[in-house]
Structure formats: C-alpha cells, structure tokens
Design a protein around this nucleic acid. Sequence first.
DNA 1: TGTACATCAGTGAACGCGCGTTCACTGATGTAC
DNA 2: TGTACATCAGTGAACGCGCGTTCACTGATGTAC
Lengths: 209, 209
Amino acid sequence: MKKDDTTPYHHGNLRAELLKTAAQELQSVGVEKLSMRAVSRALGVSQSAPFRHFKNKNELLTALVEKGFSQLAQYQRRAKKDLTPTEALSAMGIAYVNFACTHPELFKLMFSSQIYCEQNDGLSESKGEAFSGGEAFNELLGIVEEGIQQGYFQERPVQEVAFAAWSIVHGLAYLTIDYSRIGIPKDATHHLVQSALDVFMRGVSAEEK
Amino acid sequence: MKKDDTTPYHHGNLRAELLKTAAQELQSVGVEKLSMRAVSRALGVSQSAPFRHFKNKNELLTALVEKGFSQLAQYQRRAKKDLTPTEALSAMGIAYVNFACTHPELFKLMFSSQIYCEQNDGLSESKGEAFSGGEAFNELLGIVEEGIQQGYFQERPVQEVAFAAWSIVHGLAYLTIDYSRIGIPKDATHHLVQSALDVFMRGVSAEEK
DNA sequence: TGTACATCAGTGAACGCGCGTTCACTGATGTAC
DNA sequence: TGTACATCAGTGAACGCGCGTTCACTGATGTAC
C-alpha cells in the first residue's frame, strides 16, 4: 500500500495508467485496432503486465465504458445547472453532442454493446444499470418531469418525451461524428445541432407558436 | 460469358454469391468478425477465390455498403408513396428505423465510415455521393421542400429541417438497435418510435396546437 | 466442324503478421514477531 | 531495529490462432481461322 499518492513507486499505479493510455489509444485508433499489446508497449511495460490488473481485454474495455458513462453524466449535470427546464433540456442536448464529438470512439464503444454480448452472458443483470446510460437518462427524466409539472412542456408521458429527446441528440451525435470528415463542414455542425434542437423544443413545448 | 443466366455454370456467378454470403455473415457475426476466409468457407470455395472478384476485403465491404444504401433508398421511396408530406415524412422515418432494425449490422457499417478512412485517402471525392446516404437524403429534402411549399410545414431552411428529421430517425435507429436486447422491451419500441416522431412532427408542423 | 491459342476463374500452399492469454519466474514491498 | 516470510506486481518466452493476401498452378471456357 502506498503512503505517497503524489509520487507513485517506480512500479507505479499501473492500473490507472493502463486506463489512461487505453483511452488515448482508443481515441486515436478506434476499438477494433485497440490492442492490449499496444497499450503495454505505449507504457513501456511487458505485454503480460496488464493481466495483473484486468482479467482480460473485455474487462479493460468495460472499465473504459464505465468511466465514459460517468463522465457523460457529469457533462449533463454541469450543463443543466440553474436553468429553466426548457433551457436545461437544450443545454443537455448540446452537452451530449459535445461529449460525443470530443470522445467519438469512446462514445461509439459505450453504445456499441459489443462488450458484454460476446462472452459474459451470465452478467446480463448489471447491464440495466451500467449500460443503458442509466445515470444520464435519469437526469433527463428528471428535467422532463419538472418541465411538464411547471407547465413548460406539453402534457405527455415522461418516458416518451425523454426517449424522443434522447433519440434526437443521439442521432445528432452520430451524424456529427460520422460526417465530420465528409459532407458537412465542421462549422456548420453547431448551427445544425442548434436548429434541430429548436425544432424539437417546439414539438415539446406547451406554448403555441 | 454465360448464355444461360438461370442455371449458372458449375463454377457459377461467384461474385454475386460472395456478396450474398458476406451479407449473411455480416448480419450474424458483425463487421469485426467478418472474414474473407469465413465467407469462402461458407461457399465451399478456396480462400483465394474471392480475390478474383474483389481487390481486397475493403472492396467487398464497400460493395455491401453500396447495396445497403440503395436498398435503404428503396425502403424510403416505397414508404412515401401517395401520402401528404406530413404522412410521408413520418412513414419514411418508420421505414428508416425498420431498415436499421432489419439489417442492424449493415446499417452500422454503412454509417461507420470505417471503410474508406483506413486506406483509400485518394478516393475521398466519391464519398459525397455514395456515402453521405445521398440518395436517401435527397428523398428527404424533396419531401421537406414539398411540405413547406404546400403549407404543411413551418417556414424554415429546408436543409435544417431535413437534417433534424434525419437526426431523430438516426437516433431512433441506433437506440432501437443497441437497446433491443437491453432495457427496452421489443414491443415498446414501436410505440416509442411513433411517439418520438409525433413530437417531431409537431415541432415542424405549420399548424398551431 | 475442328484445331490452336488466349483468357478467365478457380486451387492450394505458403508468407508474415499481430493478437490474447498463460506460465514459471523474479525481485521488490509489506507484515509479524 | 532486524530478520523471516508471504504477498504482490512485474518479466519474458512461448502457445496457438485466424487473418489478408500472394503466387505459381491448372483446368475449363471463349474466340479466330
């Protein structure tokens, strides 16, 4: 056990560094080219070292995804601070898209569900919590409920509205990621996201325009 | 050259069969586990045979994706037949989601942009046409324009509305694919899609409600 | 119609690659008395 | 404070695997005269 957290031992806090390096590697080469060996190499450590900290590759990826989800939830929480439900919903949407654009490969991995499906059929129970983006979705449900109660949004089943909101930002996220190199110029993206959210807000709003 | 198209030669129309088998394989194992060798094996043909018909794996995948896009456009065209713009837009959205759910792996591959990015940097010009889902997006632009001109939809820049529409159905498609095994029960999906589209249509509609 | 030749569409062996994971090991760290 | 021992976190060699792709080949098909 280390007393000195600031200056780790010569053989330091490998687990944390593995996660950090794996995240960088993921970002730069994508999931399908992410290899345990490359991560080890990047850290100057033997290729078997990671297996002291993660049972297998899948477990490393799972840890990455979990970190991703909590980071996303953080983005959301920050975005909605001190805003009316209408503004908050919009801000959270933009935060979602921003997260996706800042960490495109991580974002895709988070939602690819390719981690659990391959092997751990037995562990399915945990997915509902960790993998449906539960925390972030709960934020969303909260805002929507508030918005309806306070008369900002039209009366509709909360889950339906939340799901619709999730859909549009999810779509925006994917389109922005996949088409940033193609077709759509980078600077147009923000405007397109904004106007798509406007359309959505109008669809959900209690006011008549 | 074959005169008898119905009964191909003993060594038949391999190219077409490769595409068909690759599509099945893609559907059942996903892109990252799709291998040329597996396709060859499935067809009972030597593992080098495919390379007579496709320069490399990338070219096979590209062909698959192209077929996918034209099939998607077909879904769209069928859906909108003889409907008002409002109904058509909604029907096309449902068709889009249906396509995605029927061919989830193909759909993901189509939009993953992992095909071109790896190698063919020189071929980027063609992407605008084939890969931005051009044909399908044009269908969409057409409907939106019509809808605005005929007073069904609120006045707004056509591209913006079309992009917003695309976003929501794209998001619905991805969420439905990735969460069909998780959380959301299969039969709830259709209802959620429908209600998300309702919200969107309200946001875009010219009528005040 | 028959022969000679070119082309086409397969075969099968081989290449080199990077990967995930295991295993016996070693040296450093932490703990008990 | 010092010694004996257990545990921990690395090493490096090796395993077996499936892959994409190449290459010299062969046999069937198509073409010209």
